[in-house]
Computed example of a mutant assay.
Amino acid sequence: HMGKRGDAAHAAWRKLFAAYRRQYPDLAKQIDQMQRRDAPSGWDATLPAFSADAKGLATRDSSGQVLNAIAEHLPWLLGGAADLSPSTKTNLEFDFAGNFQTPEGDQAVSYRGRNFHFGLREHAMCAIGNGMSLSKLRPFVSSFLIFTDYCRAALRLSSMMELPLISIWTHDSISLGEDGPTHQPIEQLASFRAMPGMVVLRPADANEVMEAWKVIMHLKDRPVCLVLTRQAVPTLDRSIYANAAGVAQGAYVLADAPDGRPDVLLLATGSEVALCVTAYEQLKAEGIKARVVSMPSWELFESQPKEYHETVLPPAITARVAVEEASGFGWERYTGFDGAILALHSFGLSAPSKVVAEHFGFEPAHVVAAAKAQIAGSPSTKQVGIARTE
């Protein structure tokens, strides 16, 4: 009886939708695209351009610009934050976006709005996002990276259920500054990299952010954690350094030795890429050949052919330095056991971001020293932090 009843209901639905298609062919086409998880043509028509800028801007800001540019052309891209949209830069601000508002007192009711105010409840926010994704909408959720501890079960289910939930996490490192250790994520990046099916993207600048969003829009069966800075980072000059389109491969050669045969590899993600570029330029001035590899997504990099891996990270070059303002757990995969990992093994510090960076050794001079030690074959520096080596 259940089968017959379901068959009858499905037949009624097909008849109803056929009538809808005849009356509203364009809207019906959108529903077809949603069911296939396809983006409409022209979704990327108005993506912003980011020129080289030493001062730059926070990746949360560039992400907000890209998100709005895409959402304006993708009606089923919608979402919000756990009461933090002004900080995560996830509010949709174009004229017809609006707020999804339930009845409350004399307040007008609108179920057409695309901005959701989830409240201070990260777990519920991500669970709701999963449900919206199951209905073939393209939802995004957002908060600070540290608060992912509150919604891990829902994020784990999005991965288990192969839902392309977009989660946007800002304030991604100790460089968020004065909020201190309670708000400075350390182990969160490593934990999401360990989650089966999850794609982690930590872009280095505004142009990597744009390329990261292009990757996101083509994901159909994997959730993504887009990890962004609070602080401004330089927008790299892509006429000098490699095109940011390499983000699609997960890792790419950003800056290289003139002859393509470096003596040392500098590996980094996010805001630390600019730190490695500064170190690269200093090494270059001293006649030392280095390569900077931006690695915004380990998962995407691992999906590339072995030949590409070896092009980016030549096995013969064992002098390697990895730099990330987070736990160093897992970096041995790319540095080898003798490589240097400039990372953290302690909680953070409440101080201005520059003071925090200096305290933990995230400075060009420290990267340069580690690179020289690697070339000289000195013992590796596994992790740095409070007990960093001098």
Rank of each mutant, 00 (worst) to 15 (best):
I216G: 04
Q282Y: 06
L265A: 13
A274E: 05
P262N: 07
L275G: 07
P234K: 11
M210V: 15
V233G: 05
R202G: 06
V233K: 03
L283G: 05
A244R: 05
P258I: 11
L236H: 11
N207A: 13
R230E: 07
V209M: 07
P262I: 08
A279N: 08
A257C: 04
T235D: 09
V227C: 13
V200D: 05
V292W: 03
D205F: 10
R238N: 14
M210P: 09
L266C: 06
M198F: 06
A245M: 12
R230V: 12
A285Q: 14
R291S: 08
Q249Y: 02
G287N: 11
L283W: 11
I288R: 02
N207H: 04
G197Y: 01
M210A: 15
L236R: 06
V209L: 10
R291T: 10
T269M: 07
V209E: 06
A274K: 08
D205K: 06
M198A: 13
P203W: 01
A274I: 05
E286H: 10
A206C: 03
G246C: 12
M295H: 00
L226Q: 03
A251F: 00
A268M: 10
E299K: 01
K289C: 15
V233E: 04
M195F: 12
A251C: 03
V209P: 01
K284C: 15
V227H: 09
A274S: 15
A248Y: 01
A206T: 09
R222E: 11
R238K: 12
E299L: 07
E208R: 00
D256V: 13
A285Y: 14
A279R: 02
L283I: 12
S294E: 09
A206G: 13
W298T: 01
Q249E: 01
Y280P: 02
G250K: 00
D205I: 10
S239A: 15
C225Q: 13
P196C: 13
E286Y: 10
A212T: 08
A285F: 06
W213D: 02
V224F: 03
P223S: 07
K289N: 15
V199L: 12
D205A: 11
D263F: 09
A274W: 08
A255T: 11
V292S: 04
S297V: 06
G197D: 08
A232M: 10
N243E: 14
K284M: 13
M195V: 12
A242H: 00
C225T: 14
R222D: 06
K284I: 04
V233H: 02
L226T: 04
E299H: 08
A244D: 02
V199K: 01
L228S: 09
G287I: 10
L267C: 03
A251S: 11
A290W: 03
W298L: 01
C225D: 09
L275S: 02
Q282V: 09
V200H: 02
V247C: 01
K220T: 14
Q282A: 14
V277W: 01
N243T: 15
Q249S: 11
T269Y: 02
K289W: 05
V215L: 10
G260P: 09
Y280L: 04
N243W: 13
